[in-house]
Design a protein around this nucleic acid. Structure first.
Length: 492
RNA sequence: CGGGGUGUGGCGCAGUUGGCUAGCGCAUCUGGUUUGGGACCAGAGGGUCCAGUGUUCGAGUCACUGUACCCCGACCA
């Protein structure tokens, strides 16, 4: 009973925290607000990285790396951008330590003060645009599309594992284009890449939409988002893609000579997803037995547990398992034989369930005799005994089925928790009960702010590809005319 | 930064109106029996009770100060 976790019903945040820690994804670091991502968690993140990387390359983006430190003067060039991040920056002011003259260990050497402070990047727009300036002279240099995998630091007041930590890992793409249309199209294309990743790999149904001006990225003209529903009915912003217009180009003076010889400012986008996706994975699919990892992201897709009494049985079972493992690996599956001899089978079952491995195979003396295998699927917890012959062929479709089923489960859950709402009192009652509410909005920041103040709910997005509802109506709060419904929810 | 709470072996906790050698569960280690759903028995190791000061014959327990962490707000991927 060592690893039992709090149930979802009992306390959702406690359940989440337990699950992240006890499944071996990550743990809190002694450093304030920081997190240690453990090997199992990092393996899933690496899988996400490799899939996303492939998708980015298809769009023509290339990986690059820009510095961690940003001179304060770069940072302050774009006014809105500074305002958005200034309150949560870590700043490097000195470059040397020394022995304390009073003998109390080590102190910062006051003589080593930097002439200009360096900001630890909270995002890289500023350093990248000051670099792009030198890369872009002519229309022939465009577009430029770079992505970087990096860590960023945002000094948040309150933190939660994966969802909001002081330091987190992410990817950020930054592109420069000759025309507004091209940049806008790039921003839209990338949000669709994220949506496809979420749906097909994370098995996470997401709403693609546009942020209201209040919720936009600091310095963007348009922010596109994918919004997912967690099992407590709260919304999680899982990825964003921004059309930055010419704001950064103008702030950093990035101009090119166009075909007609005129000087033009470039048009920009940026887009990113972070290790928050790990949190989404946990909160969207996990249950009281542990994680449920979609097969397409699982570092281990099939785990095998031998059950035996005698050495002869052990040898025979491991033989069979090794042969089966080879077959499965030939088909591209990742397989682990859990041959630890100090643990009993029941313990191993529970442990692999906690880690969310999609399929578990068990072979014992009984199976040895009958030529069978016990097959257990994590998503439904169903157990079946099947013939060993031909099993390798059926695992692929089983994994597919599990992937589909996890998506469907999340999809049905969301469907059951989204509704239209046209009455303000009803809104106030329902919004706190874990629902997405589709409501009319008059398009003003004032109304949005008032709704937020009264209910904590925000406009998650104005949907563009699911839950789109363009119709005439009246604003839920102000009663003013509206042309479409937007998604309101309490968010993480 | 405002409001609330908690600091006791690695983890989770108990410890009465101040009292005798600081305890329990889990984990760890040793030996044995086990192994088809989180094993059992026997034994062992592991603590400056967050820090400082004070009250007292006596402080894990009371007071003050500091500090760390957690929860609720404002901020956010």
């Amino acid at each position: 009973m060592a690893k039992e976790i709090t149930s979802r019903e009992e306390n959702y945040s406690q359940w989440y925290n337990d699950l992240v820690v006890k499944s071996g994804l990550a743990e809190q670091s002694p450093v304030r607000g920081c997190m240690v991502i453990k090997p199992y968690g990092y393996a899933i993140w690496e899988k996400m990285q490799s899939v996303l990387d492939g998708m980015f390359k298809e769009t023509g983006a290339q990986n690059a790396y820009f510095p961690l430190f940003i001179p304060k003067s770069f940072f302050s060039r774009e006014a809105e951008h500074v305002a958005g991040f200034a309150k949560e920056c870590a700043v490097v002011t000195h470059h040397r330590l020394m022995n304390d003259p009073d003998g109390n260990g080590i102190v910062v050497d006051p003589d080593a003060k930097l002439e200009e402070e360096l900001i630890v990047r909270p995002t890289s727009e500023t350093i990248i645009w000051s670099t792009y300036k030198n890369w872009i002279k002519s229309w022939r240099d465009l577009p430029i599309m770079c992505n970087q995998w990096a860590n960023v630091v945002r000094w948040e007041m309150r933190t939660r594992l994966f969802l909001r930590t002081s330091e987190f890992l992410w990817q950020e793409g930054h592109t420069a284009h000759a025309t507004a249309e091209e940049a806008q199209a790039e921003a839209e294309r990338m949000v669709q890449v994220y949506a496809r990743f979420a749906r097909e790999f994370l098995a996470l149904p997401v709403i693609v939409g546009r942020k209201s001006p209040n919720e936009r990225f600091a310095g963007a003209l348009d922010t596109l988002t994918i919004e997912a529903m967690m099992q407590d009915g709260k919304a999680l912003q899982a990825g964003t893609s921004h059309f930055l217009g010419q704001n950064f180009a103008k702030s950093f003076d990035v101009q090119f000579t166009d075909k007609d010889g005129s000087q033009q400012y470039v048009w920009a986008t940026s887009w990113g997803v972070s290790t928050r996706l790990m949190g989404a994975l946990v909160m969207a699919h996990g249950d009281d037995n542990g994680l449920v990892v979609p097969p397409r992201l699982a570092p281990i897709q099939v785990v095998m547990v031998p059950i035996f009494k005698t050495d002869e049985e052990h040898v025979a079972i491991i033989d069979k398992m090794t042969a089966l493992k080879k077959d499965l690996e030939a088909k591209g599956h990742t397989v682990k034989i859990d041959d630890r001899d100090t643990l009993r089978p029941g313990f191993k079952f529970a442990e692999w369930e906690l880690k969310g491995v999609p399929v578990r195979l068990a072979i014992g003396p009984r199976d040895l005799e009958n030529g069978t295998v016990e097959v257990h699927r994590r998503d439904t917890m169903e157990k079946k005994t099947v013939a060993l012959d031909g099993l390798a062929d059926s695992i692929e479709s089983l994994l597919d089925d599990i992937q589909q089923n996890i998506y469907k489960k999340a999809f049905d859950f969301r469907a059951a928790h989204v509704e239209k709402c046209d009455d303000w009192n009803e809104f106030k009652e329902k919004i706190g009960t874990g629902k997405f509410l589709l409501c009319h909005w008059d398009g003003t920041a004032e109304t949005e702010q008032k709704i937020k103040d009264e209910t904590k709910a925000t406009i998650r997005c104005i949907p563009v590809d699911s839950f789109v509802c363009e119709e005439e109506g009246k604003d839920i709060y102000s009663g003013k005319p509206s042309h479409q419904r937007v998604v309101f929810a309490i968010s993480y």
